[in-house]
Design a protein around this nucleic acid. Structure first.
Lengths: 203, 203
DNA sequence: CCGTAAGCACACAGGTCGGTGTACATAACA
DNA sequence: TGTTATGTACACCGACCTGTGTGCTTACGG
């Protein structure tokens, strides 16, 4: 929404203190959690004085909300804008998540903040709904009988894999991908089910 | 709750301070989270002096671990020891979770504690593995081709429903149950729907 | 040049946290 | 009766938290 407009002067000193703060947030919040990361540590990692941080963000809550809001583009478009894949492959690509992720930050934030009214929790809901919608779009494109239902189901699989990976400390995404394959094959009617034979036609 | 009344001092000596502490833990940890529940508040709710609490538990960590360890019997056996159900119904019964649950406490603890080495995180792992094992047992009894795989898949669905319910603030277990039905029907060869179970050799 | 403002370093306020120390009260048992 | 175990009430400690107040440094524009 707001983009640090300084007017025509455009004078700034520290080369984007705000960006450094958000960068450090992404790193620290994911690595140690939100509650366990104090503003002192965060400002030190961002090489920004605490005073400056509180001039850019009214408080930690606003910082956390903004931190969550910045995740969408990289993940969402990175997975769904792959025009080189068939719709079915695109649906399955959502389960090829690099193991660098400790846990979906939206789930973590919802649990840690523990307040559905928190702005960050709102962003988490919006994001999860957006993912389900994108999956539903891809499902529709793939010819699924009930795209919304399939999108919601696949979204649930992703969240389950994320949560289970965190609790068990072992990658659960392959299991989720296997389930997804079954669901996709069951949801797409026979006309489009054998897309292996029509790979060249689809492109 | 008001079984014991004392004189003007209102002193409550009681039997089972430990049980009261654990009871208050179940209530408060689930309602407000572990990190947001201080020992002061917890002891007040348990009507136990803080001194006594620290004579029963070496610290909050041990209390949290014990709190988690106490969940197994009620949930596990309550769902899986239903001999009145067919194996298939028993597998699906795991998704009929009362909506009183804000979030699976094991997932919440793993996220909140944020330390895989914490004893409570260990209990969480053990529990999740136990659930998957019980599901695999039921799947084997139902005649599934690969019981372990089906058990792991159903366990992932449960975790996904729990996480998604928390983030979206809307019940996701029906969606998970629908997926479970598909998986079960796909994994069990030549089953009767759910009226009678008949054993017959695959292929 | 000087003024302005962004940023820094540092201390500190006010609060909560987990955990203890101390003195006192009750019950069961010798 | 007295001892011992258990529990209470309450102050207190040090650590850490979010958030400010205050003066100082630096860069840039007029």
């Amino acid at each position: 929404m707001t983009e640090l407009e300084q007017g025509p002067k455009g004078r700034r000193r520290g080369r984007g203190a705000r960006e450094r703060i958000l960068g450090a947030s992404q790193h620290l919040f994911r690595e140690q959690g939100i509650n366990r990361t104090g503003m002192d540590q965060l400002c030190a990692a961002a090489q920004v004085s605490k005073r400056t941080a509180y001039q850019h963000f009214t408080g930690k809550d606003e910082l956390v909300a903004e931190y969550l809001r910045r995740f969408d583009p990289s993940v969402l478009s990175g997975v769904f804008d792959r025009t080189d894949l068939t719709p079915r492959e695109r649906l399955l690509a959502a389960f090829d998540i690099p193991p660098t992720t400790p846990l979906c930050p939206y789930i973590a934030a919802a649990v840690e903040l523990h307040d559905p009214q928190h702005p960050a929790s709102q962003y988490a809901r919006d994001y999860k709904k957006a993912v389900a919608a994108r999956l539903a779009d891809a499902a529709r494109e793939a010819g699924a009988a009930d795209p919304e239902q399939l999108g919601e189901q696949l979204a649930l699989l992703i969240d389950g894999a994320a949560a289970r990976t965190r609790v068990l400390n072992a990658d659960a995404f392959p299991t989720a991908a296997a389930i997804a394959a079954v669901l996709i094959d069951n949801a797409i009617p026979a006309t489009a089910s054998d897309d292996r034979r029509r790979e060249e036609v689809a492109s």
